[in-house]
């Protein structure tokens, strides 16, 4: 029983975090069919900026974290402008490699500026744990799903209720018609990359107190989140969030009941199996092909 609860707590917390990062993949993929493969580095950037602004610059969290997110957003814009758009304009798929390289570059640039030692970003929400049914839970762990679901809801509100949000939705649903409405699609794509990086940065800020802050902390999160986005089908935000929880839970249950040695093997084999049966993901829809 304790094991079950422990697995549930771990799975939901991490799953929400994967979902949050994966949401970033989903947004840019919906808007322009491309993704930022440096998304893991954006997770790291959020945590590193959060650390630098609070611990080194001494800013209060309320100021520092929004600034960190803005920093991530700007980086998203830069990535789109330098590593995605030039290739998209050529009709080339090389943005895939370019963003991977961008991630390597960013990780190493941070290594030399931030330092090579893991640091700790504290949060009042990890100081004391709550004991629930024999296992402990940090409030921070509960905060992650809350923020993730909140972010998904907020995005939905943003899309449905604001002018720019609706313009973004318009680009997703019909890019050609969106241009005829006078929507600057280039700006919207740029914005989607900013948003995507900010979601990753938020995930970084949330996970940092439970983990540690270092230059290569994001790589694995980025890959797992990409798996989640693919599993969710890349087309629906709620599908991706759901896939995040699913992934987190499977991961935690495999670790708990089979041992961590088998986690990657089982989880990724399951992923391939799911895609073999549903090539466009669990909740994705395949578009009708036309010639």
């Amino acid at each position: 029983m304790t094991l079950l609860i422990a697995a549930l707590v771990s799975g939901l917390g991490l799953g929400a975090m994967y979902g949050l990062v994966a949401l970033g993949f989903q947004i840019t993929y919906s808007v322009c069919g491309r993704v930022n493969f440096a998304q893991g580095s954006m997770v790291m950037l959020g945590a590193v900026l959060g650390y630098v602004l609070t611990v080194r610059a001494g800013l209060p969290v309320i100021v520092a974290y929004p600034l960190a997110l803005i920093g991530c957003g700007l980086m998203g814009v830069v990535v789109e402008a330098l590593l995605v758009r030039p290739f998209a304009n050529r009709g080339s798929d090389a943005w895939l490699m370019a963003t991977v390289a961008g991630g390597i570059l960013l990780d190493n640039a941070v290594l030399f500026t931030f330092g090579n030692e893991p640091r700790s970003l504290s949060s009042p929400l990890v100081e004391t744990s709550w004991q629930i049914l024999g296992t402990g839970v940090y409030p921070q762990q509960l905060l992650i799903p809350v923020v993730a679901i909140g972010a998904a809801l907020a995005l939905q509100l943003l899309f449905r209720r604001t002018r720019q949000g609706r313009a973004l939705l318009a680009v997703v649903q019909n890019p050609q018609a969106a241009r005829l409405m006078g929507i600057n699609t280039g700006l919207m794509i740029s914005g989607s990359f900013a948003l995507s990086a900010m979601l990753a940065g938020a995930a970084g800020l949330l996970i940092a107190p439970l983990f540690s802050v270092h230059s290569d902390m994001g790589t694995l999160f980025g890959i797992k989140a990409f798996a989640v986005a693919i599993l969710g089908g890349m087309t629906s935000a709620w599908g991706v969030m759901l896939a995040g929880f699913l992934y987190g839970l499977v991961e935690a249950f495999v670790t708990t009941y089979l041992g961590s040695s088998y986690t990657y093997i089982v989880v990724f084999a399951l992923l391939i199996a799911v895609l073999a049966i549903k090539p466009s993901g669990l909740f994705g829809t395949a578009a009708l092909r036309k010639v």
Binding site: L3, G13, L210, T256, G259
Partner: peptide, 20 residues
């Protein structure tokens, strides 16, 4: 004997097994 990965965020499942 419990193992964990260097990037694991959460080692509670393994530790819980030891405690049990």
């Amino acid at each position: 004997i419990e193992k964990f990965e260097s990037n694991d965020v959460d080692v509670v499942p393994q530790l819980t097994r030891l405690k049990e």
